[in-house]
């Protein structure tokens, strides 16, 4: 009896370990497979955080799953009628304290990491960011570059220079989201909100609206390009001056 209980407990630990391994594997694979290509410092941080948190969650989730599976396999009543009483265990201070301690430690770790990442995102690294004024309206984004006459429906950004987006709206609340840059902020009427990011990879990226804004919300997107600084300035000068 005692040995079979021990054996079943060993199978619980093994299930836990295997499920954790599967979880870690998924954590390493899924975000990289499915998240949009990271094109800024913030997006890289987002990806790392995603993977890290998933790895942290793996043993916790696996522990619960292994426990549930263990119950299903070894503590299911297979007879007829009402099951007989089980051992009347009401408490286990040891288990309780270790569970709470473990979850507290994980929480604190996640918090410390998150607060650090938040500080990293908020800290302005550059004293000379490129300023872009972003205007949301139903259902178009327009971008203007202070100091120039350029207004565009496409967002051009130079590589490796911090950009400060000053975001506002002409009508309702929109959600300005640089999909590949890992940052977003609401565009509110009569208010300017700002976000910073530093594009660090050349290519095309998506700008979408992520705050429901009426009839054609689903279509409120724009296309963006990260280009070399030289290309950026030639693009600026090639744009027609607008009213």
């Amino acid at each position: 009896m005692e040995t079979s209980a021990k054996k079943s407990l060993r199978s619980f630990y093994w299930t836990w370990v295997i499920l954790t391994a599967v979880g870690v594997g998924l954590s390493l694979w899924l975000p990289r497979r499915y998240m949009p290509a990271a094109m800024s410092n913030d997006a890289h941080l987002t990806m790392t955080t995603m993977i890290l948190f998933s790895i942290c969650a793996a043993p916790v989730a696996s522990g619960v799953y292994a426990g549930a599976l263990h119950v299903l396999r070894h503590h299911r009543y297979r007879g007829d009628g009402v099951p007989p009483p089980a051992p009347q265990i009401r408490e286990s201070t040891k288990l309780l304290t270790s569970w709470i301690t473990a979850s507290a430690i994980l929480t604190v770790f996640v918090l410390v990491w998150g607060l650090g990442a938040l500080a990293a995102e908020n800290g302005s690294s550059s004293s000379n960011p490129l300023v872009v004024n972003v205007t949301g309206q139903q259902w178009v984004w327009t971008f203007s570059y202070p100091g120039t006459h350029v207004v565009s429906d496409e967002l051009y950004l130079p590589e490796n220079r911090e950009v400060e987006f000053r975001v506002t709206s002409l009508d309702v609340t929109h959600g300005f989201w640089l999909v590949n840059m890992g940052v977003q902020v609401d565009a509110n009427p009569d208010v300017i909100t700002t976000i910073h990011t530093t594009p660090d990879k050349l290519g095309v990226f998506e700008v979408r609206c992520e705050q429901f804004c009426g009839l054609n919300h689903a279509f409120m997107d724009a296309v963006g390009y990260v280009v070399t600084p030289q290309k950026f300035s030639s693009w600026l000068s090639a744009q027609p001056a607008r009213a």
Binding site: V140, D153, V204, V223
Partner: peptide
């Protein structure tokens, strides 16, 4: 300025690479 009646503004579904934008 001030002489516009309406606009014809056309845009595409997001995520199809280069989107058509005509206004």
């Amino acid at each position: 300025l001030g002489d516009t009646g309406h606009t014809f503004t056309l845009r595409g579904i997001p995520g199809n690479g280069k989107t058509l934008f005509v206004s």
